[in-house]
Amino acid sequence: MSAREDVLNQVRAALGGSGVGTTAAGRVGTAPAAVAVPRAYRAAGEHGPGSAQVLTQLVDRLVDYKAHVRQVPADDLPTAIGEILADAGSVVVPPGLDDAWLGATGDAVVVHRDDPGAPLSALDLDAIGAVLTAARVSCSETGTIVLDGEPDQGRRAISLVPDVHVCVVLADQVVETIPEAVRVLAAHPERPQTWISGPSATSDIELDRVEGVHGPRTLHVVLVT
């Protein structure tokens, strides 16, 4: 019998199935009762997506995680990006990023547009100073930004290897709770997702939190309101 059949038969035996043998310890279990899942938890927060309260909470959480946050009107976005990238030297951007976002980034910054046909290697990315991406959805209660790999965010490697991540979040993409965010993402669960809550960190030494390990050590969030 294949391992697959063996394991599945043992699972069935453990749940009281007959005619499927026993588990490794020679047991046949009992059939569990059907289970109803109570969902009394909050499906949504008190404040709507993009509301002032939700944006304030997101900023508070991000700052708590030691992320750098700027809140700007849409017209000022290119300027804000230009200022943040001024010292980066070079930046990689996903193939579908809005060109206008780089409108105020000076010539001193080399821009690499990631090309799906000729992707940059990990070593190439390691030599690039920063990455600039959009995001899919953010959750204010936990200070979480989710990327789902669409053309304005790019493949996972580009937002991972460079040491500085500049992430643009639009106000109406910010929801209050995790269930609201998951429902947005559930439209395309097959997309590779990265949930980001601050820069990389570790608590492995005496449970003291240290920001900045293998992932980008600096996270800039530009919140467009």
């Binding site: 992707p119 209660e141 936990t142 590779p192 990389s200």
Partner: peptide, 16 residues
């Protein structure tokens, strides 16, 4: 409130 990174993937994504 949330861990810094959570990765979700489904099988193989071409090019990523």
């Amino acid at each position: 409130r949330m861990n810094p990174y959570t990765s979700l993937w489904t099988g193989v994504t071409p090019g990523d």
